[in-house]
């Protein structure tokens, strides 16, 4: 805090100081309060568009609140008890976890591997790095529409290939496992490059000497990846694990658009059997198809708690990984 104060004092021309105001008080006012004023835009916006909606959602969740009726009745925790007994909610929770694991784990492993490959002198480095990010800047709608066509039952490229090898066609949308795999593929496609770039940035901060020493000792590149790179970029790995866990708990666009490709009605239910309805999509169905805002708000809060729990578990797991590598 002292540096800006000095700069401030220096920049202020002495003659412009109005007489009569004791300097120490203004000085104090400036140093104590201005910094808060500077950071206030974020917090005011966060309060208006983050905290307030969060609290308001909690309030709404205590009501039987239908968007189409002007009366709202207080029902206490009824929405929550109903929700916890709702098998479709738990079905959506299972789908979310399953799609999350199927997408996040391969995605981060691929990303690590790609970053490792790119973290060495290469020609046209910038080209490769930009290419990595391309899937991420592609619109999610475009990605899902293209992938849904690839996974199409009748004319999809994947089924045609399977057919050509005599393996038979798969109705990707119909099955639980197959639809999860298809959706996970879309997520992996979009986010692997993004994570790879983050890993790459972290890897470049690892001192070269470590690799040189390891090479002299005869360690293979794989060994170097496992014993030097991964331990050195652990904080970054923890960060990506948490971010991608949060991301995968909130997946909605992929299953929604994937469902819309087979039937307009199955768009919000995530397939005819809700086989790929995620939590966020369940929330959408309740809130914006059935207009049950009270119930959807309760679902939002339970979902929030689930995200916190899952992220917490992941955090502990990844931290433990550090422990075992250190020893």
């Amino acid at each position: 805090m002292s540096a800006p104060v000095k700069a401030e004092a220096r920049s202020r021309p002495a003659p412009s100081r109005p007489a009569g105001h004791p300097r120490p008080r203004r000085h104090l006012f400036d140093t104590k309060i201005s910094p808060y004023a500077y950071i206030s835009p974020f917090f005011l916006l966060f309060f208006a568009f983050g905290l307030f909606p969060l609290a308001y959602t909690a309030w709404v969740s205590l009501y039987d609140w239908n968007l189409l009726s002007s009366e709202q009745t207080f029902v206490g925790l009824d929405n929550y008890t109903e929700l916890l007994a709702d098998e479709y909610f738990w079905n959506a929770a299972f789908n979310t976890l399953s799609i999350g694991v199927l997408s996040a784990v391969p995605q981060l492993l691929f990303a690590l591997w790609l970053a490792h490959l790119l973290n060495r002198p290469l020609r046209a480095q910038t080209f490769f790095r930009v290419t990595l990010l391309l899937p991420n800047v592609t619109s999610v709608v475009a990605v899902v529409v293209i992938f849904s066509q690839l996974f199409g039952r009748e004319f999809g490229l994947i089924n045609m290939t399977l057919d050509a090898f005599g393996l038979g066609r798969i109705d990707w949308q119909a099955g639980t496992a197959t639809s999860h795999a298809a959706i996970a593929t879309m997520i992996i496609w979009r986010w692997t490059g993004y994570n790879a770039l983050i890993y790459l940035a972290a890897m470049q901060a690892v001192p070269r000497e470590l690799y040189e020493a390891a090479t002299l000792d005869g360690a293979s590149t794989f060994r170097q990846l496992v014993s030097i790179t991964i331990p050195m970029i652990r904080p970054t790995i923890i960060f990506t694990v948490i971010v991608s866990t949060i991301g995968s708990m909130q997946v909605i666009a992929e299953p929604m658009l994937f469902g819309a490709q087979v039937s307009a009605g199955a768009m919000a239910t995530g397939g005819a059997d809700r086989q790929f309805q995620t939590l966020a999509l369940y929330l959408y169905e309740q809130g914006f198809r059935s207009y049950e805002f009270g119930y959807a708000s309760a679902a939002a809060w339970v979902m929030f708690l689930l995200v916190v729990i899952v992220v917490g578990i992941n955090f502990l797991l990844v931290r433990r990984m550090r422990g075992s590598l250190d020893s």
Binding site: H21, D30, S34, A37, Y38, S40, P41, L44, A48
Partner: peptide, 24 residues
Amino acid sequence: MGRSRSRLLVPLVSAAMLMVAACG
């Protein structure tokens, strides 16, 4: 009006304007 006051005001006003713009 001292400069310190405007230093405090500018970010506050800009924050308020942002909010108005966002709600507009």
